[in-house]
Every structure is written in structure tokens, then in C-alpha cells.
Simulated assay, not measured.
Amino acid sequence: MSQAHEILERARHARLAGKFEDALRDHLWFHENALETDPSLNGVRLSFALRDWIYLGEQFPLARRALQGLRDRDTARLLNGDATLARFQDISAINGALGEERATHDLFTQIDANLPDLARQCADLALPALVACEDFALARRYLPQPVERIGAMATRLNNFAEELARGGKTSSAPALLAYVLNYAKEVRLILEVLRRQGEDEEVEQAGAAALEQLKSDALRDAVQREFEQPGATIAAMLAQSRNKE
């Protein structure tokens, strides 16, 4: 286990032990330094680590304020010249963890007005916040070819599933599930934008493409379940696991 992993794990144990200041110190270190020791941790840094930080904030309000402070610092840096996709990704992930999607929307509108090249790079990351804030017109501007976009997403899912199948690792099932859930979520966002813009024909075409372009019946079935009942796939896997026990 790397130093960064150990510190993140130490933060979790400190929280569970009620050592909230120690936990916050470790979360701050991990967020600011983990990528220097292990660049592959970016996904963990912006998902599981932030989730644990939010748990800490529920018991220790200073931790939530510290996370908001990091967000505000990075927002100021982005708007004052240090504007990168990675920085926007950090900010949007923190806002998502905090449940403050309006902050991501407001930042993206400023980027859209003043930094159009960066806005094009950040549009995919901003889409959930634009939909949450019901700014469907702005979201639609950054979805010029929704059917083609869904096709590219389906190709990535197909390739990922085929790669896992070639490896023959049953332990990879959670990774495939996460990919399916993210795919279904992104498609739903796109369809919602089109629907709210009154583009019924595009909704039908994009929804059909989302299923037709998947090569596997199992993938199509899983995505269809998620369309009809978000969370159904996870519920089915949990039920299967309980039955085995």
C-alpha cells in the first residue's frame, strides 16, 4: 500500500475513532499531495476520498468548511488565470460531493462567457450540474451531435466489457457494473436535455442508439433496467449476493 493510500485509510480510522482533527489533517494532505506520489489515485481522490470527507463533515462541521474553502480557492485560481480542465474537474467533483451543483453551474457560465476553449473541454463534466440547475439551453449548446456522442460512449463500454471478458477475471464485475451505471446515467442526462428542449425525435433516436449500439445482450439488459429503474442493477447484485450467503 502506498503512502497516500495509508494516509487515506488513516483518515477513515481517525474519523471512526472520533479523532476528527487528525482525520481532517489527513484528508487535506491526501487531496493536496496524493497525485504527486501516485497519479493513478485521481479517481479515488475525487470519489471515495471526498465521500469520506463528507462523512467527516457530518460529524465535524469544520471539515465541511475546509472542503468548501479548497473549492473556493481553486475557483479563484481558475478565474484568475490558472484555468485548466483538471482544476475544473476538482471543483466540480467537490461541488458534487457537497451537493452544491449551483456553484458548478455558475462557474461554468463564467467559463462559457470568457474561456470558450476551456468551456468545450469542461462541458461533459458540467453537464450534471447544468441539468440539476435546469439550464437545458446551455447544456444543449454543448450537445451538438447527441446520437454520435452516445455512439462513442457505447463503443467505450463495449471495448471495456470485451477487455474484461478476455482477461476472464470474475473480480472485475464491480468495475463493469460501475461502467454500466455511469453509461446509463450519462445517457439519461442527454435524453433529459433533449426532452426538456422539446426534441422528441432526437430523444427517440438517441434512446434507441444507446441500446442498439451495445454488442452484448447482457449489457443491453443491464442498461435497459437502469433506464426503467435507476439502481435496479445494484439491487439485483446485492440480492444475489445475499442468496449465495
Rank of each mutant, 00 (worst) to 15 (best):
R25N: 12
H27L: 13
E36H: 10
K215Q: 13
L164I: 15
L107F: 06
I54R: 14
P128C: 07
R87Q: 04
R77D: 14
Q68M: 13
C122P: 07
E204D: 10
Y183A: 01
L8N: 01
L214E: 01
S172D: 15
S40R: 13
P39N: 05
Q229M: 07
D38Q: 10
A132H: 13
I54F: 11
L194G: 01
G231F: 02
N182C: 08
N159D: 15
D135N: 12
P146G: 06
L177H: 07
T233P: 02
R220A: 06
N182I: 06
F20Y: 15
S171C: 02
R188T: 11
D90L: 15
P39L: 03
Q110P: 04
A23F: 05
E9W: 06
R242N: 10
E36P: 00
L115Y: 12
R195N: 05
L157R: 01
E32Q: 15
R242Q: 14
G99R: 01
L138W: 00
G43E: 04
E58V: 00
L46N: 13
G96E: 13
L219M: 09
L70I: 15
A14K: 06
Q145C: 03
A86N: 13
E58M: 09
L67E: 04
R71S: 12
A93Y: 01
A49G: 05
A63E: 00
E186R: 14
G151K: 02
L143N: 06
E148V: 11
H105F: 11
S171V: 08
Q197D: 10
F20Q: 09
R73H: 13
K169I: 08
M237W: 12
E199R: 12
A49R: 01
L138E: 01
D200K: 13
P116W: 02
N80Q: 15
E226G: 00
D22A: 13
Y55A: 11
Q121T: 03
V187S: 02
P116T: 02
A152W: 04
A97I: 06
L78F: 06
R87I: 05
E212I: 03
L107P: 02
N159A: 13
A154Y: 00
A152G: 07
R73Y: 12
L164Q: 12
N80R: 12
D90P: 03
E58W: 02
